[in-house]
Design a protein around this nucleic acid. Structure first.
Lengths: 123, 123
DNA sequence: TCGACTGTACTAAGGTTGCCGAACAAAGCA
DNA sequence: TGCTTTGTTCGGCAACCTTAGTACAGTCGA
């Protein structure tokens, strides 16, 4: 069932395309904040969706080497492979997570602007 | 024709998914190495492909904010938006480019190993 | 002005991805 | 021994991505 790549089998294209999806990037942000989660708890934090949909995303993240996923009792625990990613791609994960935070803040600020004042004449 | 996002319209998911494709990552590596290229020269360096295919990739890179593309005479010059990307996502591009180099080196080393000695009993 | 050159626009096939519901498997609890 | 919880697997469907072929538009040189 597992299919985790070894550290040296991780390819940056897989990592980037795995993280190029809003849902999966959100997952990684959640996992980065806390330690281990089971699938359901992350699913809850994202406000979505069908379990089978997430199973799909777990696989993409797992097979690209971004997360560990190991069964524990009847749950399936998820955690970021931070050590491996940092070893292979120093600074990558930090830059991505910081970037995601920045995007979110910028988005939030933009929303406030467009409610309070008039938006600066953007189409 | 253009459709370049402003610096503050760039979203990290778009950047990541744009760079999550081997072809486009290769393009960015080429652009990072040199200054300005026209489309054809990059196409040549990649050893591939139909021009219309690359036009598609230029658009993805352009609309995600990764490259500038501006006409000059009958050519269309391409360049990395390094300043914008570095401003929005400090360290991201460096990490990705270094990672791509690392992957390539590792791959090359692995090929040598499996020719010279026997591969270490993988699958 | 004509022709070569550079790249885009349009179109289409084939594959991949994302999403979901239903059925299933395994672990824990009563 | 059943029932519940937790996720997975499977099948199907729509949307998107990648690739390429063909036709076209703009620019430069002769």
């Amino acid at each position: 069932m597992s299919r985790h790549p070894d550290r040296d089998q991780i390819r940056i294209e897989s990592v980037l395309s795995a993280l190029g999806s809003p849902v999966r990037l959100a997952v990684v942000r959640v996992l980065d904040a806390g330690g281990e989660h089971n699938c359901g708890s992350v699913l809850g934090l994202l406000g979505i969706t069908a379990k089978s949909t997430m199973t799909h995303h777990w696989r993409v993240l797992r097979e690209s080497g971004v997360i560990w996923q190991h069964p524990s009792g009847r749950e399936n625990l998820l955690s970021l492979r931070r050590d491996d990613l940092d070893a292979r791609y120093p600074g990558l994960l930090d830059a991505i997570l910081a970037g995601a935070d920045g995007d979110e803040a910028l988005e939030k600020a933009r929303r406030l602007m467009s409610v309070g004042g008039r938006d600066r004449s953007e189409t």
